[in-house]
Design a protein around this nucleic acid. Structure first.
Length: 296
DNA sequence: TCTCAGGACCTAG
DNA sequence: CTAGGTCCTGAG
């Protein structure tokens, strides 16, 4: 990995197994949008534009310094993990996974902020991506802070709201952002964070099982949402979130009949091992793009 | 205790 | 009527 900084952009050479569309369209992050070039998004209270040239294996980050890249974005994009090796391990002796990996070859599991991920995935329950993104944008505009930089069409950008701001928020104001019945969950969970009833930044130091047990104590966090938070913000690559798409593809391509979600998770963790979460992402992207298992 | 089903639930399209 | 589920009950 070679880094060159010029002007306000950083170029990172030697980046492989990387595709922005795969990364941002696989349902793990909600604050990134396609722009003229690449994607523009907000993370860690900063606006940034990223673009990637496959032929040169170069990742370009606009609005970023070398220090910021090394201290934050390198880990955010999970650039130190060897995806080639993991993809080979997952694909050996597994035709289905081989196909899924070939399809979503550039997926990376982002290392996002635990607090933002917690609330984002509470919102994701029984919801669709378009609406999830809209709700998070409205929440940020209402309860976040304006930050420098601009989004698409020069629109102002807002950081994700702090725990305190959502804990103090009027439930009706949360609902006005489109949260619906999840407004109560958000306020309640934000309160738990503020009061120290859950230490979301310490959870990654616990085992997968312990951290999962803690997370489901939060209102609005069930088994699936907890697994998403663990996978996308707490470096638990073994977490295997079972949503409808993954349930369908596991049932139709691996198991052959319908079975309860809990058993799918056990089955998958045994089959895919410590990188079950990455397997889940490849399967999810593959299933959703190809509409596999979708009933007519 | 623990697992599994079934219904209710905001809201935009 | 559906969409990346959770909460709440009740049954086994």
């Amino acid at each position: 990995m070679e880094i060159i900084e010029c002007g306000n952009e950083v170029r990172v050479y030697g980046v492989t197994d990387f595709c922005l569309e795969h990364i941002f369209e696989c349902g793990q992050a909600f604050r990134w949008n396609r722009s003229q070039k690449g994607y523009t998004g907000i993370a860690a209270g900063k606006v940034i534009n990223v673009d990637y040239m496959e032929e040169d294996q170069v990742l370009i980050l606009k609005g970023c310094t070398t220090d910021e890249f090394n201290e934050f974005w390198k880990h955010y994009f999970d650039l130190t993990r060897d995806y080639s090796q993991i993809k080979m391990d997952l694909s050996s002796n597994d035709q289905i996974m081989e196909e899924a990996v070939r399809y979503g070859w550039g997926i990376r599991i982002l290392n996002q902020d635990p607090w933002e991920t917690l609330i984002s995935f509470i919102i994701s329950a029984n919801n669709n991506i378009t609406r999830i993104k809209g709700i998070i944008e409205k929440l940020s505009r209402k309860f976040g802070k304006q930050i420098s930089g601009e989004g698409n069409e020069g629109s102002p950008c807002y950081s994700f709201p702090s725990p305190l701001s959502l804990a103090l928020a009027d439930e009706e104001d949360l609902k006005a952002c489109g949260c619906g019945y999840r407004g109560k969950y958000i306020k309640h969970t934000a309160g738990m964070v503020v009061n120290g009833l859950i230490d979301i930044y310490g959870l990654k130091n616990l085992s997968y099982e312990e951290a999962h047990r803690e997370l489901v104590k939060c209102m609005g966090v069930g088994d699936k949402v907890a697994d998403c938070i663990l996978l996308f913000s707490m470096e638990k690559a073994e977490a295997f979130p079972v949503d409808v798409w993954v349930k369908r593809i596991m049932e139709s391509l691996y198991i052959g009949h319908t079975i309860p979600k809990g058993k799918i998770k056990t089955y998958a963790k045994k089959l895919f091992g410590p990188y079950a979460g990455l397997a889940q992402q490849y399967l999810f992207y593959y299933a959703r793009e190809k509409k596999i298992g979708k009933k007519e």
